[in-house]
């Protein structure tokens, strides 16, 4: 198949770009595809620790671009799952160490050899984000249901559209259905309606994410927690499988009857 280069981005920091990149990469590799997870956050690298590969890094992306090593030498192979590779960012350099054209060249040199390249973008809308998106055909925008995150996601979507990305899909992360039902928090439907882009997945708030990050074992590799199942579904949708976003209806009450029940104080949730 033709290589798909997908940038994972958000605008705001701390909403889960790196977790999403690590888990979707692992999940796609488990499906039998050859995957490179690329850390484009030069100077603040983190994908390596989230994936648990920090001890095996020899060379990094900037070494490849500067010709210090060949591309295959910089790729760290994940021993837990076949066909999963990490291309680490440089930690002792800054975002100015690479240009958009160099990043594009790097992504292009992975084409043909791999099925998926997932690029973990740095936060912000400056050069780091622009470089990370430069080589990508598609984008996954991660947002949490908070005003600051949604606002930043909107800005990022506008920029990605202006770069001409052919596919922009939204992932809503850290959803708390209990708070949505009580009217305390934005729901998935609110975020989707406000941002008006295609949605590819919903990830519930799940403490196993913290545990897996602490251990350096992507959730997708081991357990069946709610977040892990969400990653599995998102990977399936990326592969073009028709998996309905049914979680949306489970998460939020809809329609007149539901509102009627809510009005008269029934508080038990459905989920």
């Amino acid at each position: 198949m033709e290589t798909r280069v997908i940038v994972v981005t958000s605008g705001k920091g701390g909403v889960g770009k790196t977790t999403v990149t690590a888990n979707l990469s692992a999940r796609l590799a488990m499906e039998g595809f050859k995957v490179v997870a690329m850390d484009a956050d030069i100077g603040l690298r983190n994908l390596d620790v989230v994936m648990g590969l920090e001890n095996r890094i020899v060379y990094n992306m900037v070494d490849v671009i500067e010709g210090t090593c060949k591309l295959p030498q910089a790729l760290v192979r994940d021993k837990r799952v076949e066909n999963l590779f990490l291309l680490p960012a440089a930690q002792t350099r800054t975002k100015d160490a690479v240009t958009s054209d160099e990043m594009k060249g790097l992504c292009d040199s992975l084409r043909g050899e791999y099925d998926f390249v997932l690029v973990d973008s740095p936060a912000g809308i400056e050069s780091g984000f622009r470089n990370a998106s430069a080589g990508a055909d598609e984008a996954l925008v991660v947002a949490t249901p908070e005003v600051s995150s949604v606002r930043d996601a909107d800005r990022i979507i506008g920029l990605l559209e202006s770069f001409g990305k052919r596919s922009i899909n939204l992932i809503v992360n850290r959803v708390r259905p209990d708070m949505v039902r009580k009217g305390k928090m934005l729901g998935v439907s609110d975020v989707r309606e406000i941002l008006a882009v295609d949605m590819i997945g919903i990830i519930p708030e799940d403490e196993t994410v913290v545990v897996s990050t602490n251990r350096g074992e992507p959730l997708a590799l081991s357990n069946t927690s709610p977040a892990s199942r969400a990653f599995e579904k998102i990977a399936g949708r990326i592969l073009g499988r028709d998996i309905p976003l049914q979680d949306l209806d489970d998460l939020e009450e809809k329609g007149l009857f539901a509102n009627f029940i809510k009005l008269f104080g029934r508080r038990e949730g459905r989920g």
């Binding site: 908070e146 005003v147 949604v150 606002r151 909107d154 800005r155 949505v180 009580k182 009217g183 305390k184 928090m185 934005l186 729901g187 609110d190 406000i194 809510k262 009005l263 104080g265």
Partner: peptide, 23 residues
Amino acid sequence: RFFRKETPRQSARERLQLVLIHD
């Protein structure tokens, strides 16, 4: 449920919609 003007969810929606128009 009867007397509150607006839930925090509704406030977030409305504030976001306004701010995004200008953004």
